[in-house]
């Protein structure tokens, strides 16, 4: 009973964070800000909901014959969670980089120095690095 309540709590928290991500992806002004909503809200809400269901799977560990498959399912959910931990942030960064290369310009807030062109101290050094690093993507 307590475990069901806890897992329901986790799932509801995940839904709330997903609501935040959905509103964010609609309202934010440019592509990069939307990546914040998509990258973070999506990750944590998925983690929380799947963790809630994994916790619910563990509810009747006392039964002898049902417990092995229940533990296996919970372990597989943990594998999904571990995979999402790595994959979600990686795909967020990869998509942000692709958006940058594709020519999306971020909206820069007024009163902020426009540092899109390069690091503040050495723009030419960054340009050199950039020119070198454009070839590294080929296998």
């Amino acid at each position: 009973m307590v475990i069901s309540f806890l897992s329901a709590l986790l799932i509801l928290a995940g839904l709330v964070f997903f609501l935040g991500a959905g509103v964010g992806i609609l309202r934010f002004p440019d592509f990069f800000s939307r990546m914040h909503a998509a990258g973070k809200g999506d990750t944590l809400s998925t983690l929380l909901i799947i963790a809630g269901f994994a916790l619910y799977q563990m509810r009747d560990l006392g039964d002898s014959e049902a417990s092995v498959s229940a533990v296996l399912v919970a372990l597989k959910m943990l594998v999904i969670i571990a995979f999402l931990y790595i994959a979600s942030a990686t795909s967020t960064s990869a998509l942000a980089e692709a958006g940058w290369e594709d020519g999306n310009d971020p909206v820069i807030a007024p009163k902020h120095e426009n540092r899109l062109a390069g690091p503040p101290e050495s723009r030419t050094a960054a340009a050199d690095l950039n020119r070198n690093s454009t070839h590294d993507s080929q296998p």
Binding site: G20, V23, G24, R27, F28, D30, K40, I108, A109, E113
Partner: peptide, 19 residues
Amino acid sequence: NIAVFKLAFAPRTAWQPHI
């Protein structure tokens, strides 16, 4: 996520996106 949740419902002046 709490920060994103707050920002999503914040007025537009609360956002200062920059690099």
